[in-house]
Design a protein around this nucleic acid. Structure first.
Lengths: 353, 353
DNA sequence: ATGGCTTTCGCAATCGATTGCATCCTAAAA
DNA sequence: TTTTAGGATGCAATCGATTGCGAAAGCCAT
């Protein structure tokens, strides 16, 4: 506990024989400071090992160089990739990243957003909790001009940037993919329809069926609560007991889809021969399960990067009222054996190339 | 941009007709303030919606209620679970969590630790980068009395808390498990021996062989750089081409082990019949791959919780010089089909219970 | 009523960076 | 030479919470 003193701008001022204000301005490249002085100050700062006190600056500016992140759960491949992208980009821009998870509970989302607000974050990146309907807790931020970027699970009506994928089209294409493989009765594992992502995927599914002359049968659309393995298995069990069971499943995530594969295999149902399956997200398990799961890939890392950039941009431009933009990223259908009926002999073990 | 003013202790003081110092002390339950005054101040604070300015307090105390986390990569099941555990616990204790990832590069670890230091974190939780040898960059923290907790990938010599598993015993047991299944020539996928976790696992492997009268053959110990799928496949290829190929593999992580399973299946090698495999970590892919991968489970979330608690405790007790403690958590061998030779008929598809 | 204590509280400085306004100086314009 | 426009810099206040020190007030006993 030697508690070495940190170097402050006052120390630099003394060393440079000028005032602290000059040092401050010099280090910030303020225009009213001469080139010579700037250079001198910056060199002295380096020489003396000066490090700005972010708390002091934050107090004064009522804003810290920190990006707040609010996700449902960190411990999920999508979130982890998202956060990783955010962190990487933020750090390059000189920002720190403060994280919090709502565990998909509205209540936690409210209190966490408040905690981040209290930390004077420069901006907030949010992926909504499953439960969230009301958005009042984000008003603080907009009232104070703190930029918010919603990612992936976004609200329909809120004046802020959005970084999303086109869930409708992705759902449409995933369903169409199954249709192309010859499926006639395609079931759907649907997530909470309150959340844009699941709603979009489901709408895409319905329209794809309609556009290809297939009936939309409500008994084939299974509402899920958490899209877990277990739910996936249970739903598959229910579906396969129908008088007229489906020959394809489009699941709104990979986890439930893998549950379906597992259960189908247990029943001796041939995947994809009798039942073609496609998931969503391209989680690591998708390429490992047997047969490998077809899925829709989701550019999670890139979404994080873009969100962070948006925050940094808005935070540094301050005045300019950028109209809230919605950025839509591309998804990609990854066709693996769980849905491909043409080439691979059903039952052949999967090889990854 | 209405920029509503935040309530400060000065506002409270005015409303209570007392001084700001009294308010400050009242809110912090300082003993020199009467119960009545405390209650009044706390009620008024609630009534007026007062929220302490953490930056101001941080500036004054030269310390913020924030825990810094430094991992190699966020986007990995173990790290994500660890961070999740940290976040949950930290938040309950009123702390925020600042994250950063080194991407396993020493250089990044140094600059990130510096950034966290500059943020005046109350404590630091670190899992070392693969590369790291030198620990000078953590001296700042210990010099300032800022608690550090090393997790999982820890250094051998540094005066700080450690939260780890017993890698030696885990490696020993994993190897013994294979021996118990009748394996006579067990190969090992070894991680960088500079890192305690891999070194421990490898030592456990060696000793288990010795203790059970099996020779330790260096050609069966494959040094890995990243323990990736691809490396796992490549190593398996090499091993199976040996004159006398192994009948078991203990991999230092699940990813490489899954690579081995994939490759073995491609070659038509029976797992576990001809080649029993066990991994490490119990990643989600382990229970999905076919056959399901035996592994050593790692209490990542719990490690995060404990680390966060350690930081909070040390940070709040301030004076007490707690001797740096090493906490060792239990691991568990999860025996799945990739290594179980008794009950399941080789080749039977996996069923999850 | 006075002395001696304890309890309760306020003053003012402090943490370090930022910034509006004032000031000083130099060089160009009159 | 005098005036003046700016360029370069300093002064001092500010952000909000904390805390050492001292002072006022309350209480009991003598």
């Amino acid at each position: 506990m030697k508690a070495k003193k940190e170097v402050t701008i006052y120390d630099l001022a003394k060393a440079l024989n000028c005032s602290a204000s000059t040092v401050s301005r010099a280090l910030n490249n303020h225009k009213s400071i001469s080139q010579k002085t700037r250079k001198a100050a910056q060199e002295m700062a380096r020489a003396m090992g000066y490090r700005p006190n972010v708390l002091a600056a934050g107090l004064r500016n009522n804003k810290s160089k920190t990006i707040g992140v609010l996700v449902s759960r960190i411990n999920r491949p999508f979130s982890a990739a998202l956060i990783s992208g955010i962190e990487e980009t933020a750090r390059k821009a000189g920002y720190n990243v403060l994280i919090s998870q709502s565990s998909d509970l509205y209540e936690n989302e409210v209190s966490n957003s408040r905690a981040l607000y209290d930390s004077r974050v420069a901006g907030l990146i949010v992926s909504l909790a499953m439960e969230t309907r009301d958005l009042e807790h984000f008003r603080n931020f907009s009232d104070q001009g703190i930029p918010i970027v919603f990612v992936d699970r976004v609200p329909d009506a809120f004046d802020a940037c959005r970084v999303v994928i086109d869930n409708y089209t992705a759902g449409y294409q995933a369903t169409k993919h199954l249709i192309d493989q010859g499926c006639k009765r395609i079931a759907h594992f649907a997530g909470s329809q309150h959340r844009n992502i699941y709603d979009g995927r489901t709408r895409g599914y319905r329209d794809a069926l309609k556009d290809h002359g297939l009936p939309v049968e409500e008994e084939l659309i299974i509402p899920f609560k958490t899209l877990s393995f277990k739910e996936g298995r249970k739903a598959t069990k229910k579906l396969m007991r129908l008088e007229n069971p489906p020959d394809g499943i489009f699941s709104a995530n990979d986890t439930a889809a893998v549950g379906a594969i597992m259960y189908a295999k247990k029943l001796g149902i041939d995947v994809p021969g009798q039942l073609a399956i496609i998931g969503f997200n391209d989680d690591p398990i998708a390429s490992i399960v047997e047969p490998p799961l077809s899925t829709v890939s989701h550019p999670a890392g890139k979404m994080g990067e873009i969100s962070a950039l948006k925050i940094v941009d808005q935070s540094e431009s301050e005045g300019d009222t950028t109209p809230p933009e919605t950025i839509v990223l591309e998804t990609e259908i990854i066709a693996r054996q769980s849905s491909l009926r043409e080439f691979p002999m059903p039952g052949t073990p999967a090889l990854d190339r």
